[in-house]
Amino acid sequence: MTELRELARRLLSEGTVNAVLGWEEGPRGARPAFVTTPDGADRLIFDPRCVHDLASYLSPRRPHLKKLGKVAVVLKPCDARAVAGLIRETQIPRENVVLVGVRCGGVLADPESTAPLSETTVADRCRGCPDREAKLADHVVGTAGAGFPGPSRRAQKIEELAAMPVDRRWDFWQAELSKCVRCHACRQVCPLCFCERCMADKSLPRWIESSPHARGNIAWHITRAMHLAGRCVDCGECERVCPEGIPLGLITRKIAQVVSDRYDFRPSDDPAVPAPVGTYRMDDPQEFIL
């Protein structure tokens, strides 16, 4: 923690950056913090309650952050993959941001919890996560626990769903997705949903019905999943912020699995690694071409 605060203080006092994005103590657990003065660096914390993916703030569509000029952002390894995605898709120039990696051994499922990090309290997505620190980062601070072994419960659920007959799987998803109220919190929090105007908001023509109706809901979630194919970094934010508790991670992980199996691609925190969309390889599977 001291290491993180000292680094933030130095970056701010030397004028390397105008703001540091990190976490601070809030009334309901850890919360994102914008530190703009060297003195403010003491507010910064990092512990297993810091679940939020701060890379979401780097989207150029967030003008309040753009006004701050050059910033530093504190990243867990999963968040760094999101930053790599933003760089890869030309949303932010690498030189415009200082990346502070924090070593991470997993975060809590519930950021408001005060329980210590354990096999029972860890976020499911952290089970089996091999990354302890972000390779993309300019600075890496802190120490990390050993992490938690996989497989995640989610992976087991995906297998369970895959084994279901199609109509039962359809029933499961209809029931889950009919709960959606179309608040689009999943989109707003996603670090890689950075479009200037989401196609779900396009009205001429309106491809996706906007009212919370099963048909539009399914169209929306399928579209979102497809747009994140090969791009989702598994920061878990969409599922965390969903007010209806829809297991969105099941969709994004299933797609990630398909992309990984078929195209041998896993999201990396190296922006030079190409994304599967738009990458052609001579040995790409193409048996679907008649």
């Binding site: 898709e89 030309t90 949303q91 950075f194 200037e196 105007r197 969309v277 738009g278």
Partner: peptide
């Protein structure tokens, strides 16, 4: 007005 400049189009 709505292009986000992700350049997926350029790649494909």
């Amino acid at each position: 007005s709505s292009c986000a400049g992700c350049f997926h189009c350029e790649r494909v």
